[in-house]
Computed example of a mutant assay.
Amino acid sequence: MMDSNNNFISSESLFNLHINKEIWDDIAEYKDEYAVVLAYREMYRILFAHRAPQIHYRAFLIKHLKDAAITMKLTHCTLHLAVYLLDIFMDNHSITSERILLLANCCLLIAGKVEEYYMKTPKITELNWLVPYPYTVKDYKILEAHILKYFEWNIMIPTAAHYVHYYLQAAVTKEDVRLKQQGVATIVRDMHTTIRTYLDKVLDDVHYMQRHKPSLLSAAIISIARQANKLSEWHEQLEQFTHYTCSDIQFTKMMLLETLPLPCTDCGLTITS
Rank of each mutant, 00 (worst) to 15 (best):
F89W: 15
F48Q: 07
L238P: 05
L199F: 02
Y167W: 11
E116L: 07
I155N: 07
P53N: 08
H93A: 07
H50F: 07
S10M: 09
A160W: 02
C107H: 04
D190K: 15
I157T: 06
G183Y: 07
I271F: 14
L17F: 06
I23C: 09
P132Q: 12
A171H: 02
V184Q: 03
S13A: 12
L108C: 03
D139R: 01
T245A: 10
V172S: 00
H80G: 14
L108W: 07
Q182E: 15
N7K: 09
R178G: 00
L108D: 04
L17P: 02
I110A: 10
F60A: 04
K66H: 10
V137S: 12
Y133H: 13
H93F: 13
I88K: 05
S223Y: 06
V177I: 13
H80M: 09
L231M: 15
L262E: 04
H165K: 07
M119S: 15
S223F: 02
C267A: 04
T259S: 15
I124Q: 14
E42C: 10
K138F: 12
I55K: 12
Q54D: 09
V202D: 03
T96I: 08
S97D: 12
N128H: 10
E12R: 07
A28H: 05
I100L: 07
K31N: 00
N6L: 09
T272P: 01
I221T: 01
S215N: 08
E258D: 15
D67P: 03
T194F: 14
H76V: 01
R189N: 15
K174E: 11
A52M: 06
V206R: 15
K230D: 15
V137L: 08
I224Q: 03
R178K: 14
Y150C: 05
K31Q: 10
D67K: 15
V202W: 04
D32L: 09
H192T: 13
Y167A: 00
F8Y: 14
Y135F: 15
